[in-house]
Design a protein around this nucleic acid. Sequence first.
DNA 1: GTTCAACCTCTTTTT
DNA 2: GAGGTTGAAC
Length: 719
Amino acid sequence: MSSPFIDYEKELNEAQYEAVFIDEGPAMVIAGAGSGKTRTLVYRVARLVETGIDPESILLLTFTRKAAAEMMDRASQLLDVRCRSVSGGTFHSIANYILRKYGDLIDYPNYSIIDRGDCGEVIGYIIGELGIKRKELKLPRNSTIIDIISKSINKSLEIADLLEIYYPHLSDLAPVIGELALRYEKYKKERKVMDYDDLLVNLKTLLIEFPGVRQFLSNKYRYIMVDEYQDTNRLQAEIVKLLGEDHRNVMVVGDDSQSIYSFRGADFRNIMDFPGIFPDAKIIKLEENFRSTQPILKLTNAIISRARQKYTKCLFTKRKGGVLPKLVIAWNESEQSEWITKKILSLTSEGINLKNIAVLFRSSFHSFDLEVQLAKHGIPFAKYGGLKFAEAAHIKDLLAHLRVFLNPHDHLSWNRILKLLPGIGQATANKVTNWLDSDIPSLDRFSEYVKTQKGTMKILNELVNLFDKLSDPSLEVKDLVEEVRKYYEPIMTNKFDDYPKRLRDLEYLQEWCAPFQSLEQFLTDMALEPPEVSRAPSDFAERPDFLTLSTIHSAKGLEWKVVFVIHAADGYFPSRHSLYREDDLEEERRLMYVACTRAKEQLFIIYPETGKDSYYGQVTLEMSQFIRGFEGEFADVVRARNELYGKSYPETVSSGYGLESLRTGRGFTIKAGDVLKHPDLGMGVVLEIMNHNKARVFFKKRGIRTIDLKSVKDGQWVV
DNA sequence: GTTCAACCTCTTTTT
DNA sequence: GAGGTTGAAC
């Protein structure tokens, strides 16, 4: 069928075309890295809508909401605005959407969503309630216990079996952890809270126990598409099956060699099993790579060819030319950072935008040193992955006030906000929450309680006042946030000595919350789809062109002209945690594959030869086993030092800031780039020397400050 | 009994 | 840098 708007035949290759033109029935698209997977999904959405299918009956399940939004956007540009009404989002957000409607059927008429940190606190609370002695039993930390419980749900394994496989050293604790898991379930039911797993579990329960609802939903979502299917877990696969078994219009798209989420229960065997669930599924492979140059593709194919599991396809490209990837050996971490910084400066001087460059790493702390170096050279960057914005203590503090206001049953949040007040610790907080819990908790009840109190407890009046202010029904979400901010900022300034950064975060939150119509929506979104940057953009990141620093997990599905993979040494990448189990190591290999396949034109893999270990001191590091042996044929090897100090590189690089040095009153010289330790402000990097014995300094904790050099005493210069 | 500052350790990846 | 633990101070 030809379209008046879209020239499918011209814009798609044969395999893509075949996938796009599947109208009905089950299908599985195996899409290699850079093979136009998104393109295929976008064109299929456009085509379905073009043939007259109601966009709302198309359900597009993606890994992040942003991915869904982007696809709908592109489809709209291709066809028309109808594509914007496609039902799209993550499994969790769709589950939430459905459960908000039908929750009363499974005894969840209303609920709040708790994040990983909250879950840990619940465990801590339960341990306290049960009077368990942490130390005697050698219990692991709360977060580990939560990991165990969550994994057992996502992998449908008994706690004891799971411990045997993944945490053998904790095997003895199976009965205790099992008990904790039961109590944890009970707590969540009683308090009407759900964690991430509950959203999926409860959706599945709903679909199974209420066939009428299942049929209704199945009829509503007549075309289901699932992106990144290799990273779905058992539970998600079952949900897809339940929603799809009536009409069987289910298309899943994925790449088994890019599965990198088994740690959270994903099972790439879902891909292998799909034809088992839908025996007549059409299987289409996208094997032509449009992203990378020939040499990069050769290396990435080599990386994945060493995998134990043989994968289902082999990628090729028609692109000619391109330069060999480079393996760079640095002496230590700081030389690694230095080399990257200089390379980036030389790339930008060649006219490549920072937007086209990414630095990728296994773990978020791998970039700490580089972040300082980049700041030193005035290179703006945004960091993705690691500690989430919404997980930072100050953001959680602020939100806790709103959560209590919305839901006075929220025992965790009460606890959190009470303990912020001076003179109130765990014991007093317990007194208050116990009293609240002895009847139906409400804000009125709280204010009554406070009236009867004397002494230290008087301070609680401040909270009562805050809730009074919040109760004004004319307030919008942004006003509510602002009120809490006014209340909380002094507390925060007191509590954290790095408050300037955190103040910026609150401003960012203030902006971010503005579009929300209801407090509930805002809080739900903060749990399910929080802002993706790790912290509010600094002065640097506000500039339009900035570098991307990202964990590989957060870089999934993205691409850049130039990619640096750092810390490519055994112990870092693969992570030392993965060295004991073959499956884990194989997942790390796929992670390296994902990292390298992000590169379109230039790929640099770099590692430090020496590292610091808290126990052994300085240690020698080996090149990552995933790339060892590829020197020569697949990649050039260079030493960072030769490039840094050889003739081809200038001794100093213009940082955009004044470079002249300055003699201070005490007779030593400093210049831009020097590192110093300020008695009050901590570690900082000198950005610029100014007149009158002053300097602009970037402090790790406080941001950019101007300091008087006369106040800096001898011996405070670190470098 | 309670709070809180100072010290310690250990840092995987995320909806 | 965030979490837990400890011990001094109220």
